[in-house]
Design a protein around this nucleic acid. Structure first.
Length: 386
RNA sequence: GUGCCUGUAGCUUAGUGGUAAAGCGCUGCUCUGUGGCAGCAGUGAGGUGGGUUCGAUUCCCAUCAGGCACC
């Protein structure tokens, strides 16, 4: 695949992803557009956010389009009215999000809260051949071959192998089993590939060092165009917060240097720096878009909760010096956005989303510049005040 | 001036002769391969003065305020 590694600054990488949708410089943030829309945005808004890559979801699009819809589908670029680089997630994550995540109330990242075990919430049954999703009392079957076929019909630039993410709550034996299934499904996904879309393999193995290394070696040895690190992150049961990226320490050195690496579903500000520092090229996360809908405005200063009452009459700029369209051209004030949210005006979430997505993309731009100037470590230090 | 109605949390409203409920607001927390604008947890009240009663936000009287109608 057209991936060129331009420069390394310690382990941080500056690169170019070349696809039919044009070259994209990395490290780059991947904006989540699960059902083919960046929530709250109109197609015309996307260019305003400096978005380079979006990720859509196979499971959600498959369920909403149906077989007929898929057969008539003219491709995600048409659908999104956007020419940028598009990835699709394989639906593997829904094995987790609709399965154990619902069963135990646990997120992707473990917190200190005890789990509330509710087996009846689990909508997923996993077998070696594939996965059964419970939908309105009926079981829907998805496996590697079908996921790849759907992703082909969706027409994304980069597709992902079908996998079974491990839950932070799973023990060693189950995590190993899920990893082995993921490995088998990776080979089947490669086998099933139809067109010349680029395909990434997914590394699992939870928070167990030997499993992570085994997975990185195995998946890394297969002829994928790139790799994605998925599954459970986090300190595992009351451990240290800084264990979070240990898995990347184990995995990244074992992956082929000349191929791109994606980090699945992780992407707060600090996470971005930690991941890039360990050699991650792209990462996707819901944080900028979801938090925008909930009134969370991001800036270098952290998160601003625009819903707070003290902003009701605050006529100062949303974020001082920000060049995003919301802050810049529109000159949105704290008071203005606060009151739009309070009035439940749909434009509130849209303005916030444009700001957040622009901010994250712009941060990636700054990170690329710092790597180009061999200054990443210092940039990180200054940025995070550490 | 007379008659009627209404006065419960910051707002809009429940309910009851015996620990006053809800929505919104406000405060705090949460959000990591997305539940379309969320979730969780808090905060906070019967206009005023009397009376009846073991006990009144609830019944009675007065007073004040607002609304409506009439002269």
């Amino acid at each position: 695949m057209g991936f060129k590694l331009l420069k390394k600054d310690n382990q941080a990488r500056l690169g170019v992803l070349d696809t039919p949708s044009g070259p994209v410089e990395t490290p780059s943030y991947v904006v989540v557009a699960t059902d083919g829309h960046i929530r709250t945005l109109e197609p015309g808004d996307i260019p305003k956010t400096k978005t380079q890559i979006a990720i859509c979801n196979t499971y959600h699009l498959w369920r909403s389009l149906g077989e007929n819809g898929l057969n008539d589908f003219t491709g995600l670029h048409d659908f999104m009215e956007w020419e940028g680089l598009i990835m699709t997630d394989s639906g593997g994550f829904q094995v987790f999000s609709l399965g154990v995540a619902r069963e135990t109330g646990v997120g992707k990242i473990v917190t200190e809260e005890g789990e509330k075990y509710r087996p009846e919430n689990n909508l997923v049954r996993v077998t070696d051949s594939g996965v059964y999703f419970m939908e309105n009392g009926e079981e829907i079957y998805l496996d590697a071959e079908l996921s790849i076929r759907i992703q082909d019909q969706l027409g994304s630039d980069i597709i992902l192998a079908f996998d079974e993410p491990s839950s932070p709550l799973h023990d060693y034996d189950y995590t190993k089993k899920a990893m082995e299934r993921t490995h088998a499904w990776a080979e089947r996904s490669l086998e099933a590939k139809i067109s010349d879309q680029k395909i990434y393999g997914i590394i699992q193995g939870g928070h167990f060092e030997d499993l992570r290394r085994e997975s990185a070696k195995f998946i890394g040895s297969l002829p994928f165009d790139g790799f994605a690190v998925g599954g459970s992150f986090g300190s595992s049961f009351g451990g240290q917060k800084n264990d979070t990226f240990q898995e990347l320490n184990w995995v990244n050195p074992l992956l082929p240097e000349e191929k791109p690496r994606h980090l699945l579903g992780i992407g707060r500000i600090e996470d971005i720096f930690e991941a890039v520092e360990r050699g991650i090229d792209t990462m996707d996360c819901v944080i900028p878009t979801r938090e925008a809908r909930h009134g969370g405005i991001w800036s270098q200063g952290g998160r601003l909760d625009i819903l707070k009452g003290l902003y009701q009459d605050d006529e100062s700029p949303l974020i001082e010096g920000c060049e995003c369209p919301t802050c810049g051209e529109e000159g949105t004030t704290k008071s203005k956005l606060h009151n739009l949210f309070k009035a439940k005006d749909f434009d509130a979430a849209r303005k916030a989303t444009i700001h957040n997505v622009f901010f994250f993309n712009n941060l990636m731009f700054q990170i690329r510049e710092s790597i180009r100037n061999s200054n990443f470590t210092q940039f990180k230090k200054n940025y995070l005040h550490v």
